[in-house]
Amino acid sequence: MAQTVKIKVTVNGKQYEREVEPRLLLSDFIRHDLGLTGTHVGCEHGLCGACTVLMDGEAVRSCTIFAVQADGHEIQTVESLGTPDNLHPIQQAFIEKHALQCGFCTPGFLMTLVDYLGDNPNPTEEEIREAIDGNFCRCTGYFNIIEAVKLAAQKMASH
């Protein structure tokens, strides 16, 4: 029988206790064990950024962290941001600037940006590009995402 480890993780403010195999990736844990499927998986080797979540407030890639390592930590996923009727300003900005097409990479961008704009409320365009450089998008060419980040920064400043 494979070893399992008991973990306690807080995800989007809710505490979960689960028995997991040590090799279970945090991305699979969030998606398949907890059913929070807003986080997506695009490469499983830490390059594409689709699986980005916040761990204790910092953007990390959930495909290169084991679920056991989340024990005692706080995770935030896209489900913690807004709802269709009450969108987070970054989500609102993405919609207004047509910064998503297929939407698969978008949750990763959002979580990266929640962390980034929290620390850097007034970034230059060059800084924005660097901030999202670890998130791949195949649909938008990033142009509208960059515009959306500028708009989101404005929206968050006036909040």
Binding site: V60, I65, D133
Partner: peptide
């Protein structure tokens, strides 16, 4: 080094 998410970890 890589990207912000990697450096956070």
């Amino acid at each position: 080094i890589a990207h912000p998410q990697i450096r956070n970890r």
